[in-house]
Nucleic acid binder design. Structure first.
Lengths: 148, 148
DNA sequence: CAGCTTATTGCAAAAAGTCGCAATATCAGC
DNA sequence: GCTGATATTGCGACTTTTTGCAATAAGCTG
């Protein structure tokens, strides 16, 4: 996935951040990885492009990229977080608490909720990339329904 | 001590877990702490009750308590997760990404979403305690480019 | 495009979280 | 109540993530 069409330079600047080599390389790494990239994936890709970039710099770059909305961070349950490009992140995740399976659902599924919350609380839900937990179809049938 | 709620013994057993001292003490610690308890809070409270309980045991106990639904885990943005008692968690959280404010919303707000997801994907959404991010009313109007 | 201001980096060290394993404690069955 | 099977603990070692700080580089100004 490329991000050539995105004005990530402007996005960083308007948020008051500087455009630096490490940040662009980290962004490239997230782009280069299909689907969800774990930290280990990103670190490896970044290292291939520039071995001098430090681990801590990668963490900090990811934080910045997430904050400005270029990258999306998800906690899928298992240790460590995963990252994906915000552009292709117009979907949300259903993570099964039992088997760990990850389903992707269409973005508009939560649009009703977003509107509802905004009306009732004046809160503008960030609807980019949510992670919702529960039980997938298979695990529901395996484990008899115990009140959750 | 929350002897008022004797359900936790049954709940643990029904899920195939044993009822142990460390787990009860960790549960007590989460109970004892008003609102959201950070790991550091829990560790301190647990230590006060029993200094021999290990760090790793606390982490593992929290995992179990979260899995059986007695305790609720939230990622509020800043490093580390926070925990709260599920009993008081007939609500969900809206966390402002800008100012960190935490709003509680009523549980039934997401019931429509739950039904919708179940119909479309057969996924049983765990609707106990969601943490949703976004911008609160104040920060929407302010929207300063860069700060925390 | 040189100089200035300040955000950002790399490093090193600390803190937070995870994991394997022997010892221990829970609980079912007697 | 004992006893045995086994889930759980505490420990230590390990990996992952965060943080403070001096050196560096980005981006403004003229």
């Amino acid at each position: 996935m490329t991000h050539e069409n995105t004005d990530y330079v402007d996005i960083l600047r308007t948020h008051g951040y500087r455009v630096t080599m490490p940040r662009m390389i980290v962004l490239d790494a997230v782009c280069a990885h299909e689907g969800h990239a774990a930290i280990a994936d990103i670190q490896r890709l970044v290292y291939d492009m520039d071995p001098t970039i430090d681990r801590s710099t990668i963490y900090r770059a990811l934080d910045v990229l997430v904050e400005v909305g270029l990258v999306v961070e998800s906690d899928l349950g298992h240790p460590g977080k995963v990252y994906s490009i915000a552009g292709e992140a117009n979907h949300h995740h259903l993570v099964c608490l039992q088997c760990g399976k990850v389903l992707s659902i269409r973005r508009d599924v939560i649009m009703g909720l977003k509107a509802q919350i905004h009306e009732a609380y004046g809160f503008d839900l960030q609807a980019d990339h949510l992670t919702l937990n529960g039980l997938c179809r298979d695990c529901q049938s395996k484990k008899p329904p115990h009140s959750l």
